Simulated scan of single mutants.
Amino acid sequence: MDQHTPPATQFGALPFRETRGGEVEFLLITSRGSGQWIIPKGKPIPDLTPQETAAREAFEEAGILGEVDPHPIGRFAYVKDQGQPTAQFIPAVEVFALRVTQQLTLWPEMGQRSMVWLTPEQALHAIEIESLRKIVRRFANRFPKAR
């Protein structure tokens, strides 16, 4: 890809689970470059739909499996590897909700990132990308106890 060709849309998963008390929690991971708290995401994967790509990225980056919603819940843009000489603007990450049903003990990128389950309030505090915070806030409001 030359410097005049914009990067393609990426696909991301917003991993969530409901607690026994009916509250929602989100799984966030750190990016490998900047270490900021984000969601699993990546470039399109041939022969996979956007939501399947999002689910695959969640498996590879965080070791989670689940039910992915086929309809996107939002889009955000970000600067990849911010502050690095190779930083690039990613114009869009299409986000799909992923209800986590299984958390694995081994996965492809294990040990390359940190990850944590957070309440909506904690997640909103941890996420630096404002447009991603808006998606998390809007999605959390679907759960009565998150309001």
Rank of each mutant, 00 (worst) to 15 (best):
A13N: 01
T30R: 04
A58K: 04
R75F: 01
E61N: 09
G83V: 15
K145I: 01
A87C: 09
R17P: 01
L27I: 14
P108K: 05
T101D: 12
G66L: 13
E57I: 01
T19Y: 06
W107P: 04
R142Q: 14
A123N: 05
L98G: 00
R138T: 10
E61C: 07
E67F: 14
R75E: 04
P85A: 08
Q102F: 09
P72R: 06
G33I: 00
A146K: 10
I127W: 15
G33W: 05
E25P: 09
P7F: 00
E109P: 03
F76H: 07
E52A: 13
K134H: 13
M115R: 13
F26W: 12
Q102H: 12
L27M: 10
T9K: 10
P50M: 10
T19V: 06
G63H: 05
F59M: 11
E130T: 12
R56T: 15
T105L: 11
V93R: 00
I39S: 05
A8H: 06
P6L: 03
Q82Y: 10
Q84F: 15
H71M: 15
F96I: 07
I135G: 00
R138Y: 02
V24H: 00
R133G: 04
E57T: 07
L14A: 04
I64F: 13
F76P: 00
T5M: 07
I39T: 06
P91M: 03
T101Q: 10
H4Y: 13
L132H: 08
I45K: 12
F26I: 09
L118G: 11
L132T: 10
P7Y: 03
F76R: 04
E18P: 01
A13E: 05
D69T: 09
F59Q: 00
Q3R: 12
G83Q: 11
R138L: 01
T5C: 08
Q10E: 14
L48H: 03
G63M: 05
T105N: 15
L28I: 03
S31A: 14
G83E: 15
E60T: 08
V136W: 04
G42H: 08
K41L: 09
H4W: 14
G111T: 02
H71W: 14
A140N: 04
L14W: 02
D47K: 14
R137C: 07
R138H: 10
S131A: 13
Q36A: 10
E25W: 00
D47Y: 14
I135R: 00
A140R: 00
M110P: 03
A58V: 12
I29Q: 04
Q112A: 14
E25R: 09
A123Q: 07
W37S: 04
P144C: 06
P70F: 00
F76L: 09
A8D: 11
S131G: 08
Q51I: 02
R147E: 15
L14C: 08
R56V: 13
